[in-house]
Design a protein around this nucleic acid. Structure first.
Lengths: 143, 143
DNA sequence: CAGAAATTGTATGTGTGCATATTAGTAGGC
DNA sequence: GCCTACTAATATGCACACATACAATTTCTG
């Protein structure tokens, strides 16, 4: 089959590689943190007290998935959640002190690992790849 | 956060878009078929009687995952599985007539949908993206 | 202000994705 | 032939991913 020439397959392979690099680096740093959990913590750090639906929107995930992600972050003690007073449907999410500390520790690691995600490319090629990916991603969001 | 500039996040978004396009097209065609199931059927079509470990290797999936994928293809009646006579550990997998028919119907749809996966790019840009993705994918496989 | 529409979070069900352990079977070295 | 190393599937457990449905609220509209 022509599977290896299909963008869909290539993208899946890239995603697979990307998550593997992430997990390896986290494990090497002695941390149990997934890409989704990292992204969610970032959204919470950017907007303390953010509700779960807004987290989902910010990092482009499903509302149902985020509930479980936050559950797991709470069980790690990195995040706290309480019912909002303004809207009793919503839950306000915050980083705990420990969570803020972990995130500060992890952010440079995640930033550093991004180059390894695009192994085998030169700086120029990486920039080119990102520009193209951004373009597709924007078109996706628009339509 | 700088999430939107991170290759890892961009790749995840691309993957998300890619699978959504796939599911939409399948649904529009009245078919219940996932990307993994399609890839697995392709591997079986290429090598009738292939064992599950070889399918996993061919399409870069986990051996444990493939078992479930084949289970679901069997329950749809598109694939058959039997214990190999040469190696009683292994299971030989084949397309059923119905499965071969479905695959023949679906292949052109999947080929056609690839351009939509890279929405917003010109032909030249799509080619460029694929070349870069291929390069990363190859480097990944090598190391 | 009452009823309708929209929204938040949760529950449920299906399908990956992968690590680890186990069982069953094969093959190589002696 | 026998023990060991390897290998194919499966089982288990955890973490997404997302569609759909639902209960509790809030907001919009007349």
């Amino acid at each position: 089959m022509t599977l290896n020439t299909m963008p869909g397959h290539l993208i899946r392979r890239l995603h697979q590689h990307s998550t593997q690099v992430f997990q390896q680096r986290m494990k090497a740093a002695g941390l149990d943190l997934t890409p989704v959990q990292f992204a969610a913590m970032g959204a919470v750090k950017d907007t303390p007290g953010i509700d779960q639906a807004s987290i989902a929107a910010a990092i482009a995930y499903d509302r149902a998935t985020i509930g479980g992600v936050i559950d797991r972050l709470i069980s790690k003690g990195w995040v706290a959640r309480n019912v909002s007073k303004r809207d009793r449907r919503a839950r306000e999410v915050f980083l705990t002190d420990k969570g803020a500390q972990v995130f500060a520790e992890v952010l440079p690691l995640v930033a550093a690992l991004q180059d390894d995600v695009l192994t085998g490319l030169s700086d120029a090629e990486r920039a080119q790849f990102c520009a193209l990916a951004q373009k597709v991603s924007d078109a996706f969001e628009a339509g």
